[in-house]
Simulated scan of single mutants.
Amino acid sequence: MIQFSLRCDSDHRFDSWFQSGDAFDKLKAAGLVTCSVCGSAQVEKAIMAPRVRPARSAAAPQPEKPLSAPASDTERAIAELKRKVEENSEYVGPDFARQARAMHDGDTPERAIHGEAKPDEARKLLEDGIPVLPLPFVTGRKTN
């Protein structure tokens, strides 16, 4: 996995994780990399500074931020996106790839779904022309 700093044509900046640099290029070419703030598909890699961690003895303790309060406009936008996705689609868990394929093939009625797919499952869906995209958050898993 690799994290890229990204920038859209409206100069919104955000980070996202990808399986590899090639995976980013393929998803971008398929129009599946979009700005997490405005939704623009005109996204490019931004200049990134290397992440260097100071020695443990030199690192000053940081005050903890509450996990429930988004700290930036980007975090608020992602929280709002998560809320909308969870309200307007069905969580299908690890059965996502099978159900997405069944809808694409016309074997089951189309509906909005979200869930989990292994990287090779997601890659195969994209190769077969089935439109899927990674979400910039972890979905709320149903336990019952």
Rank of each mutant, 00 (worst) to 15 (best):
D120K: 09
L6K: 02
I113R: 00
Q19S: 13
G93T: 05
R101G: 03
A23V: 06
I2V: 15
A112I: 02
A55Y: 05
M48K: 06
A69S: 12
A60S: 10
S40A: 05
V132W: 00
S20W: 11
C38W: 07
A97S: 15
A102W: 02
P50A: 09
A59R: 12
Q99V: 15
T139E: 06
L27V: 02
Y91T: 00
R83W: 08
D95C: 04
Y91I: 00
S5F: 08
S57Q: 14
R13K: 14
S10N: 14
K65H: 03
S72M: 09
F18H: 05
D25E: 13
S72L: 07
E127L: 10
A102D: 10
T108W: 03
R141F: 08
I113G: 01
K45I: 12
P131E: 04
R56F: 10
P134F: 05
S16V: 01
G93A: 07
V33A: 04
A102Q: 11
W17C: 12
I130T: 06
L27A: 11
G140R: 14
R98V: 04
N144C: 03
G21W: 05
P134N: 10
D107T: 11
S57G: 13
E87R: 09
S40H: 03
K124V: 09
R51K: 07
R123K: 08
A77F: 04
F137S: 01
R83C: 12
V33P: 00
H104Y: 10
D11Q: 15
G39A: 07
A117W: 00
A117Q: 02
V52W: 08
K65N: 06
K118I: 07
L81C: 06
A30P: 01
Q42V: 10
Q19G: 09
P54G: 05
P54N: 06
D15H: 12
Q19Y: 12
P63L: 06
A49K: 13
K84G: 08
M48T: 15
A97W: 00
A122W: 01
E90I: 11
F18A: 01
D120T: 14
R13A: 12
A46E: 06
D95S: 10
S5M: 12
G115Q: 01
R13N: 14
H104T: 00
P131A: 08
V132S: 02
Q42S: 14
G21P: 01
G31L: 05
N88R: 15
T34M: 04
P94F: 09
K45H: 08
H12E: 06
A60I: 06
K124E: 14
P131K: 09
C35A: 02
F14Y: 14
G106T: 11
D9C: 02
V132A: 02
P119N: 11
A49Y: 10
D15N: 13
L67C: 04
A122F: 03
E80M: 11
L125T: 04
R56Y: 11
A122H: 00
H114C: 03
L126T: 13
V132Q: 01
A59P: 01
A112L: 05
P63M: 05
A77P: 02
E121N: 05
